[in-house]
Nucleic acid binder design. Structure first.
Lengths: 172, 172
DNA sequence: CGTATATCGTTTAGTGCTAAAGGAGTTTTC
DNA sequence: GAAAACTCCTTTAGCACTAAACGATATACG
């Protein structure tokens, strides 16, 4: 039996009290996902600040590193993989370029296209950061046992897949 | 039959391929929560824009409305309930005050304190908005059956409760 | 072919957050 | 009961995003 109770239960109860006919069923999932995402975001921002980085740059470098050699992708593809607009990537790249972490070059195939690649400095930096972060985030989930984590992943995957169909991505 | 596969599986597989010794176990939960939160955020922003509102103002008005009569709370308490800094609330209140949706008055008990209350206009606006939004968000979860939704809520509540202990709230 | 349409990346305006600093009022302590 | 410490709210600087507008190239079509 879980006698666990959180702020989100309060929110749901409050709407039920104030407006008994309003459907409150989505709150338990949606508001909790929001709140957890915010806590994780705040935590990651601080962790990155401690390492002299920021979350946006980390996301950019990690995406390029993960792509495998030669650690380069077109802007459009980075935007898709990071789930932000191409304008956001443009800004991220400009910032990272100024710190010599990435380079831009025109695409060979397409005169409009720009390919962004990791510099050695950028490669180094992400290499030194990614393990730290993933170890740390492992501990953030220690409230959940292996089985609970798998069950949670499975349900979130189902919801994520469906929402991607339902909600148009942030335009490009 | 979970032959389901999403972008997050790709991210996890890519790290495993590129750095076999890095612990990737947290990705399936944390990255998915992030992505889902972003999709929900984008969707809510658009829904609110369509209704001539914005998500920050909605959050403020909803918090006051939910508190019940007389629909007024001190800034500090709003910040806690909305899980943002008091500086953010200060800005939200200033914007909403300009549209005659809320009022500020000095607290009787504490010369430092400020109490923010809904105006009739603010009450009206949130009343007209909240049902629409909750009905809409109900449909966003329709990929999940009743039982899955309850299981998901339960696991998220467990994680949320634990993270609130672990991660310091955004100061303020 | 040449014009219309679409796509790619960038830029800009607008929004909204955190963190940190500051002014004002309150509580604690000796 | 005065000084120190704390709390409350606001303000500011800095970051980062979306949406929309804009040039530049690429593709499609009659």
């Amino acid at each position: 039996m879980d006698h666990l109770h959180d702020d989100v239960d309060d929110i749901q109860d409050a709407w039920l009290r104030e407006r008994p006919d309003t459907p409150v069923g989505s709150i338990g999932v949606i508001t909790r996902i929001w709140r957890i995402a915010k806590l994780l975001d705040d935590d990651r921002r601080r962790t990155m600040a401690r390492l002299g980085m920021d979350t946006a740059t980390r996301d950019l470098l990690a995406t390029l590193r993960r792509a495998g050699a030669p650690y380069a992708l077109p802007v459009q593809e980075i935007a898709r993989r990071c789930a932000v607009t191409s304008g956001a990537i443009s800004q991220r790249v400009r910032r990272a370029e100024g710190q010599d972490l990435v380079t831009r070059r025109k695409s060979d195939d397409d005169g409009r296209g720009v390919v962004v690649g990791l510099t050695p400095r950028g490669h180094d930096l992400i290499e030194r950061t990614v393990d730290d972060l993933l170890h740390h985030e492992e501990t953030l989930l220690s409230a959940l046992g292996t089985e609970q984590r798998e069950e949670l992943s499975k349900l979130l995957r189902l919801l994520h897949t469906d929402l991607q169909r339902r909600v148009p991505p942030a335009g490009g």
